[in-house]
Simulated scan of single mutants.
Amino acid sequence: MGGSKWEQRRVETTQRLQHCALELTLERGFDGWTMDDLAAAADVSRRTVFNYFDAKADVVLGPHHDLPEETVAAFVSGGPTGRLFDDLVQLAREVLHETSVDIELELLRRRVESTDPKVMAIFRARFEEHVEDAVALILEREGEGFGAHRARLVMRLLVTVFDSMLDRSAPDLTRPLPDLIDDAVRDARDVFAD
């Protein structure tokens, strides 16, 4: 988590707000707390909460991050490696790096998503939006002949790799994220090589 002190403070505040929102959701359910409750739990002003997040769903699920245009253009043109799955893994790495993923926060988010039906529904809707955006990029890169069903399958496999990465992190939260990703990708390759 490099960058300026301001950037570091922004990341820390974003993560603190998300952590508090997830804890509130576990305790009270998604509809059982307000943004004012979140501000009090995080010990910030209501204004600060809204400077970071527009809505409860955003703070619980995490902010949406767009990839830089040059990264998307490189992917669509067949880069960086020329192998679709490897390039998608690289895009995922960039998103995880850019967003300063906190594994503990992701594990807590996973717990909330699996226990609160409202959060589960919101997560599913957001997930489908992201998948459709990715499918469009894959089809732009690979051509319509690749097929939307195959593109969705590739994205779901990538999500499964990410989920495996979270499973691997639980016993040892100190392992570097790139190592966890590499292990999960390696295991996926091994499974499909059999």
Results as ranks from 00 to 15, higher is better:
Ile181Gly: 03
Phe127Gly: 12
Arg16Cys: 04
Val191Tyr: 09
Ala21Thr: 03
Ala151Phe: 06
Lys5Leu: 15
Glu27Cys: 11
Asp43Glu: 15
Val72Ser: 13
Ala55His: 11
Ala121Glu: 15
Arg126Lys: 08
Val159Thr: 10
Gly147Phe: 02
Val154Leu: 12
Gly82Asn: 06
Gly143Lys: 07
Leu24Trp: 05
His19Lys: 01
Thr13Tyr: 06
Ala151Ile: 01
Asn51Ile: 10
Ser114Val: 06
Ile181Asn: 01
Phe162Ala: 11
Glu106Cys: 05
Ala40Tyr: 08
Ser169Cys: 05
Val60Ala: 04
Asp102Gln: 08
Leu17His: 05
Ala40Thr: 15
Arg175Leu: 08
Glu27Pro: 01
Leu24Val: 00
His19Trp: 10
Val135Gly: 05
Gly78Asn: 09
Thr71Gln: 12
Asp179Asn: 09
Gly79Arg: 00
Pro178Arg: 03
Met155Lys: 02
Val159Ser: 14
Ala40Gly: 12
His130Met: 12
Phe53Ser: 01
Arg46Ser: 09
Gln8Ile: 10
Met155Phe: 12
Leu153Arg: 04
Gly147Met: 06
Leu177Arg: 00
Arg109Glu: 04
Val49Gln: 01
His130Phe: 09
Glu70His: 13
Ala188Gln: 11
Arg16Phe: 02
Asp86Trp: 03
Leu91Ala: 02
Met120Cys: 13
Arg156Lys: 02
Val89Cys: 02
Thr14Lys: 03
Asp187Trp: 05
Leu17Ile: 02
Asp183Trp: 06
Glu104Gln: 08
Leu84Gly: 11
Gly82Pro: 03
Val101Thr: 08
Ala55Glu: 10
Leu67Pro: 02
Gly29Met: 02
Gly78Lys: 01
Glu98Gln: 12
Arg152Gly: 08
Thr48Ser: 05
Phe123Met: 04
Asp87Gln: 01
Gly32Glu: 00
Ala170Asp: 07
Ala188Phe: 13
Arg16Lys: 10
Gly145Lys: 04
Phe75Asp: 06
His149Leu: 14
Arg111Met: 09
Val161Ile: 04
Arg110Glu: 10
Val49Glu: 05
Ser169Lys: 06
Thr34Arg: 04
Asp54Ser: 15
Phe53Tyr: 14
Leu153Cys: 08
Ser114Pro: 05
Ala193Ile: 11
Gly145Cys: 06
Thr115Phe: 06
Asp179Gln: 12
Pro171Lys: 01
Val112Pro: 02
Glu129Val: 13
Val101Asn: 03
Leu137His: 10
Asp194Cys: 11
Asp31Ile: 14
Leu84Asn: 12
Ala74Leu: 14
Asp190Met: 13
Arg186Asp: 14
His65Trp: 09
His149Gly: 14
Arg83Gly: 13
Ala39His: 01
Val131Pro: 04
Asp163Tyr: 06
Phe85Pro: 01
Glu23Phe: 07
Phe85Ala: 09
Phe85Ile: 06
Ser77Pro: 00
Pro176Cys: 07
Ala148Pro: 08
